[in-house]
């Protein structure tokens, strides 16, 4: 994004942080508190990662050991058979690409459309903005399952079934994303745009050069949610596509649950799960530092 506002952001940061010591307590209590925090995090981490670990280990286990009695945590040997089985059943590379395009395009368009709308709702004091906002929120509360058939009919009437357009356009903007961004935009100090306006900036300039750069964490958060949500979405791509060549990966993996009871190849399913998770973990690793420690929206109100 633009660098124009960077200096001003820095300039208005608060006085340098007081040295750590001032944050209270002796060295002993600090160590104690820190180990408490670490213990809490370890519990969290164990709870969250254990089931995922089971999937990862299962992906490399022989099928006969994925499901066995007594259950194994670690397989007796590691194997890539499940990945061969996966490749034999679904076109992984093609469907991964489809997933990337589907989730990527939805995310990109949602970033643009949602942030424009959120800006209007948060920063322009037009008549009835609360009414528009309220109606949008109300729409969000109609369960998706009730809308699925009418949406399908609409997409079908447009001739978009089994196409990227059908997958993407109905999701090009969404209330949840607008809502999320609005809640962040609204916390940005008013002085920001006033200053820019005094300098003669128009609405689009304020939006682009003042609000957006200061809302990077929120934008990244929304982008991450949209990407992950669409990458993992099941019902939507399954309903909107029938052709395995336009299907995203998660929808393709759904076929692995097997056509009949008792034939589900668990090892292959876990291998497929791993393939589907990996890009998201990598994405998160790339993004997390930025969006959590990114451009902090601090110190502007003082």
């Amino acid at each position: 994004m633009t660098t124009t506002t960077r200096p001003s952001t820095r300039a208005s940061e608060p006085a340098p942080r007081p040295p750590r010591r001032a944050r209270g307590g002796t060295r002993a209590t600090r160590v104690l508190r820190q180990s408490g925090v670490v213990a809490g995090l370890l519990v969290f981490a164990a709870l969250t990662s254990f089931p995922v670990l089971v999937v990862v280990l299962g992906a490399f286990s022989p099928e006969s050991e994925v499901l066995s009695w007594p259950p194994n945590f670690l397989p007796s040997r590691f194997t890539l058979d499940n990945f061969d089985g996966l490749a034999a059943r679904i076109p992984i590379a093609l469907q991964s690409w489809n997933s990337l395009v589907f989730a990527g395009v939805v995310t990109a368009s949602a970033l643009v459309l949602n942030s424009l709308a959120a800006y209007a709702l948060a920063r322009i004091e037009f008549r009835g903005r609360i009414a528009v906002f309220t109606v949008l929120i109300a729409i969000m509360m109609v369960p998706f399952q009730a809308l699925l058939v009418p949406i399908y009919q609409m997409v079908s009437a447009l001739g978009w079934v089994n196409t990227l357009a059908g997958l993407v356009i109905p999701r090009a903007a969404d209330v949840a994303g607008i809502f999320l961004l609005r809640q962040f935009f609204i916390t940005l100090p008013r002085d920001l745009d006033s200053a820019a306006r005094i300098d003669g900036a128009g609405e689009l300039r304020v939006f682009w050069s003042v609000i957006l750069p200061n809302a990077k964490p929120a934008l990244l958060t929304m982008a991450l949610f949209h990407f992950v949500g669409n990458w993992n979405d099941l019902l939507w791509p399954l309903i909107m596509t029938s052709d395995s060549s336009v299907r995203p990966l998660t929808a393709g993996l759904a076929l692995l649950t097997g056509s009949a009871t008792g034939v589900a190849p668990y090892g292959v399913m876990m291998a497929g799960s791993l393939v589907a998770i990996l890009p998201l973990v990598v994405l998160y690793l790339l993004v997390q530092r930025r969006f959590i420690e990114g451009v902090a929206m601090t110190g502007m109100k003082g």
Binding site: V112, L113, N114, L116, A117, Y119, A120, L121, I124, E125, F126, R127, R129, V132, L136, I139, V142, A146, L147, P150, I151, M154, I169, P170, R171, A172, A173, D174, V175, I178, E203, F207
Partner: peptide, 24 residues
């Protein structure tokens, strides 16, 4: 202000009207 807000809202609202509001 209303005009500017409308311009900012229009693209997103069009999508939402077509694929959420009308189905609703």
């Amino acid at each position: 202000r209303t005009l500017r807000a409308t311009a900012f809202l229009a693209p997103a609202v069009a999508v939402i009207v077509a694929f959420v509001f009308v189905p609703a």
